[in-house]
Amino acid sequence: MSSYESFIRCRGVTKTYHKGNTPVTPLSALDLDVPRGTFLALMGPSGSGKTTLLNLIAGIDSPTSGSLHVGGVDIAKLKRGQLTKWRASHVGYIFQLYHLVPILSAFENVELPLLLAPLSRKERHRQVQVALELVGLGDRSDHRPSELSGGQEQRVAIARAIVANPALLVADEPTGDLDRESATQILNLLRELVREHGKTIVMVTHDPRAAAAADTVLHLEKGRLVEAADLNMQAA
């Protein structure tokens, strides 16, 4: 796989935080290539920099040095405001604890990203409905998050992540708070998004069974990729 084709391309990505006077470097000189349409799982011990890397790829944070291309754009060079705009249409973030807005219904939560796009109300509503149906919650649009199960909440969050049709999805332990059955549903849904809709997914997980759902598993240790296993998991 040539880096030219990579959808995500990290070169020498370093991230340093400052805790008072002592610098912490969760990522140092990291190189990574992820082809388009890949489901990548990131594993590694706690504190190894998984979330940090995910945040960089999602444009939530900027690297201290290095280049970070996503879909041809070096997002390491974008300023805060540009990055915010970029996120709106290029990436969907799925959180371990869903992060739905409690006062909004499932429908309104999913609608949030679309309010940033120049769409007619009708078109917006159609897209929200499509996304909710894709995650199997077309009949729950009026429910508040508090009226949904954890698995359902995460599916609403996935609908919110895909509704603006970004090419990239990132997920930080999306099944970490779910029972086995719900987790399986979520993983199947993510696989479907890669297979059927051509999304590229980077998922952080501690759970080997979750990682097994991915095409590729990478291990992070102390800010470095230590081993790459191509599991060649293919859906039947």
């Binding site: 405001g81 915010t84 709106a88 973030y93 959180f95 807005v101 949030l112 940033l116 603006a164």
Partner: peptide
């Protein structure tokens, strides 16, 4: 979260 979604 809203900032992550794209709100300034």
């Amino acid at each position: 979260t809203l900032q992550a979604v794209g709100y300034s």
